[in-house]
């Protein structure tokens, strides 16, 4: 008996891209887009494994291959010892999946009717189904509006119905694709608490997200994925520890331009620079990764002041997973 709930080995997915010239002509030369590039990882039973990466990194494609919706170009995905391609129906019996987007349930049915339908699709009917549905509706705080059609629910409620739907057959493994995407902050917090509760029941959870704080808060281990490749994999703590010689310096500036950026890049020890303009505060937030940065802070400040730039604020931060991502790829998760 394997100790891994999910074992992915050299998984690869290529998509053919058809390009068009004008209205009718199709480019004869077919291009191949590699969405997932030879990735391998294992998820231990009972852990939350986070898949962190920007949009388009290959997270959803990986999830779809594991949940049998997509056939891999090569490689294998094994769920509890069962091959996803060879025995998909058996895999689906032990897997609960919530895909991204709120339209994965029937809006013209009530929350209760949705759960009744998906329970029956998993072979659960009668008294057993009713008990399970009542339990899930209460647990997910949907019981008071269980008999209203889903179209009248908020986005957070719809997501909770989708999660309850995935749990209806009591799956050992739960796959959640961007579960908090599009939710308001309070709904996000509530859903994250629910996910942790589900983990406490002993279920294995594979979670994708592009929110680094979500991956950090929920995951026992994280794989960081970019351009279809896993570029780092460890516990959140160890990933951040890997940056312990790097100082994260955040400057709030009145102005920021490419020439200033080039100038700062010229300072020894500067590894990465990311910047964003805060529309509300009307200022630039510039994050600078520096190795042994304490020695070069003077250089940094002097260089910025020499460009007649105004420093509004200055702080040194603890590394986050976003910093790990920046350090590995040279870009922000939001890019």
């Amino acid at each position: 008996m394997t100790s891994y709930a999910i074992e992915v080995k050299n998984l690869r997915k290529e998509f053919e891209i058809k390009k068009r010239n004008g209205f009718f002509k199709r480019n004869k030369k077919k291009e191949v887009f590699i969405a997932v590039d030879d990735i391998s990882f294992q998820v231990k039973k009972g852990e939350i494994f986070g898949f962190l990466g920007p949009n388009g990194a290959g997270k959803t494609t990986t999830i779809k291959m594991i949940s049998t919706l997509l056939r891999p170009t090569s490689g294998t995905a094994i769920i509890n010892g069962i091959n996803c391609v060879e025995r998909p129906m058996e895999v689906l019996k032990i897997l609960g999946t919530v895909l991204t987007g709120e339209r994965s349930i029937y809006w013209k049915l009530t929350g209760r009717e949705n759960l009744e339908y998906f329970a029956a699709m998993n072979g659960i009917t009668g008294r057993k189904a009713q008990v399970k549905i009542d339990y899930l509706l209460t647990r997910f705080n949907l019981d008071k509006r269980a008999d209203e059609t889903v179209e009248k629910y908020s986005t957070g409620m719809k997501q909770r119905v989708a999660l309850a739907k995935a749990l209806i057959a009591d799956p050992e493994i739960l796959i959640l694709d961007e579960p908090t995407s599009g939710l308001d902050p309070q709904s996000t917090l509530n859903l994250r608490e629910l996910i942790l509760e589900i983990k406490e029941e002993g279920r294995t959870i594979l979670l994708t997200t592009h929110y680094m704080e979500e991956a950090d808060q929920l995951s026992d281990r994280i794989a960081i994925i970019d351009h279809g490749k896993i570029i780092a994999m460890d516990t959140p703590c160890n990933l951040k520890k890997g940056l312990n010689k790097t100082n994260i310096i955040v400057l709030e500036l009145k102005d920021w331009n490419s020439s200033t950026e080039e100038r700062i890049k010229g300072i020894p020890m500067v590894e990465n620079i990311t910047s964003r303009f805060d529309d509300i505060a009307q200022r630039w937030e510039v994050k600078i990764h520096m190795v042994n940065g304490n020695d070069s802070i003077n250089d940094l400040i002097t260089n910025i002041i020499s460009t007649n730039n105004k420093i509004i604020n200055f702080r040194v931060e603890e590394p986050t997973l976003e910093d790990v991502f920046i350090s590995l790829t040279g870009k922000s998760l939001r890019e």
Partner: peptide
């Protein structure tokens, strides 16, 4: 996709 994710 929700329907294709059921074991039917």
């Amino acid at each position: 996709e929700s329907n294709w994710l059921t074991p039917i």
